[in-house]
């Protein structure tokens, strides 16, 4: 992975740690003791991580020392950002579908749509898998566990 991207990620986490530390100081009384302690430790670790990602002698030394290997951290395989965003999108679609339409409607539609559109699977296989997954949830939760499956915001009064 490009060093720039790694530095960006480390810096982002450092920003998060600084934000947490600032919020920690706003807590009243004893409730802030441990969060502030953890916040300072996190900031220290994140600074080390940012330095470790830089292509400097100090960065290489810290990376090697803290990874336990004289050859530094291993490179990881590159992945397409658009594919990653698509995968996040499908999880969020499933989540939103469940909330709005409930499990009994959202699950078959999500499984079918994911398999046909994202996985390029045949329609029949996708349809059967979608029905099978929904049937499994219905049998396991509603039939066997006698648990009423969530019907979604749209159908909750039905």
């Amino acid at each position: 992975m490009a060093a720039g991207k790694q530095i960006f990620i480390s810096a982002l986490v450092l920003l998060g740690a600084l934000g947490f530390l600032a919020l920690g100081y706003e807590l009243p009384g004893k409730g802030r003791d441990v969060p502030v302690l953890v916040g300072w430790i996190a900031v220290g670790l994140c600074v080390l991580d940012v330095v470790a990602q830089t292509p400097t002698a100090a960065g290489r030394w810290i990376a090697a020392l803290l990874s336990g290997s004289a050859s530094g951290e291993p490179e990881d395989e590159p992945r397409g950002l658009s594919l990653e965003l698509k995968s996040f999108f499908w999880v969020l679609v499933a989540c939103a579908g469940v909330i709005v339409f409930g499990f009994l409607w959202a699950v078959p539609v999500y499984v079918f749509a994911y398999m046909t559109l994202h996985g390029r699977k045949p329609v029949v296989q996708s349809g059967l898998t979608a029905l099978g997954a929904t049937a499994f949830l219905w049998i396991a939760f509603e039939l066997l566990l006698e648990y009423e499956i969530y019907r979604g915001l749209l159908f909750s009064d039905l």
Binding site: V111, Y114, Q125, F141
Partner: peptide
Amino acid sequence: HVLVPVVVAVAFMGSF
């Protein structure tokens, strides 16, 4: 691509 949507659906159901 068969495994992923099924496990995600079961995960959400279990979580809820």
